[in-house]
Amino acid sequence: MKGKLVIFLLLLTNSLFAQSEWPIFRGNQQLTASVESELSSLLQLIASFQTDDDIKASPVVKDGAVYCGSTDGFFYAFKLNGDLLWKFDAENAIEAPAILLDGKVLFGSLDGWLFCLNQTDGGLVWKYKTDNQIIGSANWHKGAEQTVVAVGSYDYFLHGVDLKDGHNLWKYESDNFINGTPALYKNKVVFGGCDGFLHLVNLETGQVEKKIELSTYVASSPAIVEHEAYVGDYDGRFFAVDLEDGSVSWTYDDPEKNLPFIASPAVSANYIVLGNEDRQLYCFQRKDGKLVWTKRLSNRINSSSVIVGSKVVTATMDGMMFMHALETGEELWSYEIGSQMVSSPAFYQGKIIIGANDGRIYILGEK
């Protein structure tokens, strides 16, 4: 009984946390993009915010404010009604999602800088240089003495940086570009790279603990539930990997459809949902990888879906957004943004927030 109570309290805490903020790409440090909440099937445009170039980064949200960078070289903070709070000139395009951590905003740019700003006014706290572009979000681990921020770069390294002052703590070298966001597992992060491996790196030491071969490029970010990581690759395979023993628990592979999984998975207690370049939205059973349903959408899917309660929201490359029933795949809603979307949606207090290649960030909710 005591164990069940602890699990219930953890689930309740996670649910409340996810509804009050979306502080990182995919909503939480395990990158599951799944919350136990309610989402209307009658979403409408309630506000938007315009920048001067494409939005490829995914927005993050906290305390009624949205934070997102643009390829116009500026990073923006604005209210849910679209009013600007502040902007920061990064002097180069921003495609990486930000993280919101201890009153700070951290994000990478295409010229390899990791910036740390004050969340309240956008003032620069510090910046840290890598040797190539950063297109994935950072993640973090709070230790006894310091908070380590981990970010991957196209310089092949995962960088461990001290949140306090931005100095380098360690660097872990992979064998190719690091595209995605590392997912937190205990005091470690898990990430895939263009070297075809899933890396498990200790954030306190910067040492690799496991290096699991998946055979081909991994462009997306993994999601972690319990001791398993879920990730797709560039050949259209999707894996469940046991992080304790390093084995592959199950694999989905349709040799007739070998287009890439660019999108990252959304993972609930029972289901995994993600889109593919083949225009299909896939739903698997989490425990064994059994295909539950697929739906062919209007175009390629590079944006990563989110699960809100019993519903899934997905964006496509032709500017459409869709909502499906999680268990059956029934289409419940669609909306035409009208511009390509590689940005992934955030969920915040009944609203879906997403950027598009017309330079605008859209806020959809129930009027």
Rank of each mutant, 00 (worst) to 15 (best):
F78A: 02
Q119M: 07
I94R: 03
A65Y: 06
D155P: 14
K87Q: 15
Q133Y: 10
D121G: 01
A144Q: 12
C116H: 01
S137D: 09
K79T: 07
K127R: 15
F115Y: 15
I94W: 05
Y156I: 08
L100K: 05
D63E: 13
C68S: 13
S137A: 15
V151Y: 08
G69P: 09
N118Q: 09
W140P: 01
L163H: 03
H141A: 05
K127C: 01
W126F: 14
W126A: 04
N81S: 12
T71I: 05
W86K: 01
L163D: 03
G122Q: 01
F157L: 14
V149D: 11
D155V: 13
V66R: 05
F157G: 08
D165S: 14
V60P: 08
F88E: 00
Y76K: 11
V161A: 07
H159I: 12
Y128N: 13
V66D: 11
G108M: 11
L114F: 14
V161D: 08
K62V: 10
A77Y: 04
F115N: 06
Q133D: 08
D155F: 10
I135L: 03
C68Q: 12
L163R: 02
I135F: 03
C116F: 01
I94K: 04
N92D: 10
P59V: 04
I94P: 04
G64S: 06
A150I: 11
G160S: 06
A138V: 06
I55N: 04
S70Y: 00
Y67K: 03
K79C: 01
F78E: 07
D83F: 01
K62I: 11
G73F: 00
A57H: 03
